[in-house]
Simulated assay, not measured.
Amino acid sequence: MIVRILGEGQYDVDASALDGLNELDAEVERAVEAGDEPAFEAALAALHDGVRAAGRPHPADSLDESDLILPPAGASIDEVRRLLGGEGLIPG
């Protein structure tokens, strides 16, 4: 699966890492719902770190479409609130 972090690039992430990434995604959701900016920033950074740790950089010259797209570092809580669907940023 290809995960894009906007403003950074794409990562090839094995599907076996999704459970752990979903836990991090749930932390982002909880912080957004609570309107807790410090917790949101920490949770989004942890989600990005989780993708980087679980994945490997996808070739920059590739035109492959991303399976998941995450907001960039520095995204506001309101921007992410608009992106969240019923299943968060990472479905599953």
Rank of each mutant, 00 (worst) to 15 (best):
A17S: 12
D25A: 02
L18F: 10
A45T: 14
G92L: 11
A60R: 11
D36L: 11
I69L: 06
N22T: 12
L89R: 03
D64Q: 09
A17L: 06
P59N: 03
S62R: 05
A34Y: 14
E23L: 12
A43R: 01
V32A: 04
P72K: 15
E79A: 13
S16P: 02
S66G: 05
A42G: 09
D25Q: 03
P57T: 09
D61T: 11
N22Y: 08
E33K: 14
E65K: 09
A42Y: 10
G7Q: 11
R56A: 15
H48Y: 10
P71C: 02
F40T: 03
A42K: 11
D12Y: 06
P59F: 02
A53Q: 12
E87M: 10
D25P: 04
I5M: 05
G35T: 13
A60S: 13
G74S: 06
L70S: 01
L70N: 01
A46Q: 10
E37R: 15
H48I: 09
R82T: 07
R81Y: 05
L6D: 15
I77S: 07
L18N: 00
L83G: 03
G20R: 00
P38F: 11
P38K: 13
A75W: 06
G86P: 15
I69K: 00
V32Y: 04
S62C: 04
S62K: 04
S16R: 14
D14S: 10
D64A: 14
E8Y: 08
I5P: 00
D12W: 09
A46V: 09
E87K: 11
E23N: 08
N22F: 03
L21V: 05
I90F: 05
D12F: 05
G88I: 11
D67L: 10
D64E: 13
G20E: 11
R52K: 15
A53M: 10
V51W: 00
E87Y: 07
R81L: 08
S16Q: 12
L47K: 01
G92Y: 03
L44V: 06
V32R: 02
R82E: 15
D14K: 08
D14L: 08
E8K: 12
P71M: 06
L18V: 15
E27Y: 11
